[in-house]
Amino acid sequence: MYKVVTKRFLNDAKTICLFEIEAPLIARHAQAGQFVIFRLDEQGERVPVSVAGYDREKGTVTVMVQAAGRTTKMLHTVAEGDYITDIVGPLGKATEMDGLKKVCVVGGGVGCAIAYPIAKEMHERGIEVTFIGGFRSADIVILKDELKAASDKLIMCTDDGTYGEKGFTTVFLKQEIDANIAEGKPQFDRVIAIGPDIMMKFLADVTRPYGIKTIISLDPIMVDGTGMCGGCRVIVGGETKFACVDGPDFDAHEVDFDSLLKRAAFYKDEQDAAAAHICNMTGGKRNG
């Protein structure tokens, strides 16, 4: 059993929640870009979620989770001081940062929670970080202050213009790239994009003509997270890779997005049915 030592909603709409969990084995080695897998209880499924932070001394790992399906909705009902049955990690490879000088990190929605520790570590290492954070509207925006502290330049945008700039991340990424050219500034030597698959696909299209290496973090369907089931297969550069051990970071210009999008939707019917069966009487708790 693993104790939730801190729980805090990160936005007004309470769609994304931070959990700091006691897990010394994970805290010892976790790095930005890696993920963990948690299981709520005996009947629970194994759900991968990115590492949003860690405290090696306290022995805790932090995750930021959006309530999307049945399990994540039930996780949101877990209170501070309560326990979850399992958490394991760190899994996957850490995000590569060596040798980088100027990076644009793009986060879409809850993707900002995953992009945040990467931006933070890069910023601490002296890499120049431009952060573009995109959300649907003001009520779901997260990490306003944290992202500001973790970047040299921060652009926040919403689809409806209710917070920050109005528009999509793709527009602002292109603007920044073009500005670097127009003003004779050094170009980004890397773009790191994390968000919905479709957003990452379009961001890859933005950077492709400029030849800027673009890394995306994938979270396909997986079971064990250790390379055992092969459920998380992605096609990268024509080869089959396992996102859990070969990733989760991949070169966006090599990823087969068509296959990625189809595979991600494979269990959609089952997911929808399961999410519809959350007990309202117990506020979503299984054994409430």
Binding site: L25, R28, H29, V88, G89, P90, L91
Partner: peptide, 8 residues
Amino acid sequence: NAIVGKSE
């Protein structure tokens, strides 16, 4: 939940 090679 201890993956030798990852957790330690």
